[in-house]
Amino acid sequence: MKYDSSTPYGLSWAGYTTVQEAYSWDPVTVLSRPDGTQGLVTEAQVAGVEAPLWSDRAYSPSTSLPTSLDQFPAPAVYLDFMTFPRLPALAETAWSPALAKDWRSFRARLAAHGPRWTHQGIGFFRSKEIAWP
């Protein structure tokens, strides 16, 4: 899904997925009764998480069918933009207990990666939620 309305790739039929929403995702909560009163699994029963990346809308603008091959970015450009910085958010969800997660702390730690990613040539989405240096 798109990060926000300015995202050139992806769709928004299920809403936007901001970095904070990716970070706040909790598999135990998702696997709860519809009314939220009881989890169907415990945190210990969750074996892991996954982050599928769909490429069926890997062109710009992704809201209509492409009319030219020029609308398709290089695969690495699409991959970098759509996975960074959401992938580190999901990774922390995977390895951290829910009670240990802290959005404010994560934002600061994530921002520190911006210069590294830039130096490595990773074309990440510069979310306005993060105070990038």
Rank of each mutant, 00 (worst) to 15 (best):
S127R: 05
T93K: 05
S55R: 06
I130T: 09
A76V: 06
F125C: 11
F81N: 10
P73A: 04
Q71S: 13
S55K: 03
A112T: 07
T37A: 13
S127K: 01
W132H: 04
K101M: 08
H113M: 11
A131M: 07
P27K: 02
L31K: 02
D26W: 00
R107S: 14
T7H: 14
S60D: 13
T7W: 03
W95G: 14
D102P: 00
V19T: 12
H119P: 01
A112M: 09
G15Y: 02
D102N: 15
M82Y: 06
Q20E: 15
D4T: 05
F84I: 10
A98T: 13
F81E: 10
D102H: 06
P97N: 11
T93A: 13
Q71C: 00
F125H: 15
P75L: 01
Y59E: 02
R57G: 09
D4N: 13
A89M: 09
D80A: 10
T17P: 01
A74I: 08
L53Q: 05
W95T: 13
M1L: 11
A112W: 02
G39I: 00
T42S: 13
D102S: 14
D102L: 02
W13E: 14
T17G: 02
G123A: 15
A89K: 13
R33F: 00
F125M: 12
Q71I: 01
M1D: 08
E129G: 05
A108N: 12
E50N: 12
R126G: 03
V30C: 04
A94R: 10
L110R: 06
